[in-house]
């Protein structure tokens, strides 16, 4: 039949569509990331600060700090202060405290999130304990800094934003390297 060639072509094309859509399913992951960064979806914070480095002394923003432990996480984890007042353009610092009360070394990952989401795209962290995993030995207590800049371009309506961290126990996935205490 004359159709058989075009049939082969047709089926091949349809299969290509299928493969392309399967790949597209995975491509949604980076696409989503880009969208999140661009629009602050889900409170993903923005990347490097590229705005003016001068401080906008004309306005102040209340920055609140939240800490949540994932349900199976036994560390103590909290910010040193509940909130601070920041001027856009200035570098601010907040210390979070983590303490491993258990008798085992553990690793943890903190995941940041910003509310309102409209502000997330204007919140730049220059240093954060959430960039890496934290390993604490039994009984160890550490102070972890986060440094951030609130963008000068942040909409004027936003006067109040919340930086929230959720602490997850990732010991099972990333076992901490045991420290030889010499005993």
């Amino acid at each position: 039949m004359a159709d058989s060639i075009s049939m082969k072509k047709l089926v091949t094309r349809l299969l290509l569509v299928v493969v392309a859509m399967f790949v597209f399913g995975f491509a949604l992951v980076p696409i989503y990331d880009v969208m999140c960064k661009a629009f602050g979806i889900n409170g993903k914070t923005a990347g490097q600060y590229e705005g003016e480095q001068t401080v906008d002394a004309s306005r102040q923003v209340r920055v609140q700090f939240l800490s949540t432990n994932s349900a199976d996480m036994s560390w103590d984890f909290y910010p040193k202060h509940d909130e601070l007042t920041a001027n856009p353009g200035a570098v601010n610092e907040m210390i979070f405290i983590a303490h491993n009360p258990t008798d085992k070394p553990m690793s943890a990952q903190a995941v940041p999130s910003i509310a309102p989401s409209a502000a997330a795209a204007y919140f730049h962290k220059t240093e954060c304990f959430c960039f890496t995993q934290q390993v604490l030995q039994p009984g160890q207590r550490i102070e972890m800094p986060v440094r951030f800049i609130v963008d000068r371009d942040m909409p004027k309506e936003v006067k109040h934003l919340t930086l929230s961290y959720t602490l997850f126990d990732i010991t099972a996935r990333h076992p901490p390297v045991a420290v030889n205490t010499g005993g």
Binding site: V18, M21, F24, G25, V111, T166, I170, R173
Partner: peptide, 29 residues
């Protein structure tokens, strides 16, 4: 043919999260 592959991708990502240590849908990772 446009969306069933996306579902397949979706459950594949789940499978990888569950068994192969990826973190497509896990906030912790």
């Amino acid at each position: 043919i446009a969306v069933m592959p996306v579902l397949a991708g979706c459950v594949t990502m789940m499978l990888m999260d569950i068994h192969f240590g990826t973190s497509f849908f896990s906030a912790a990772g």
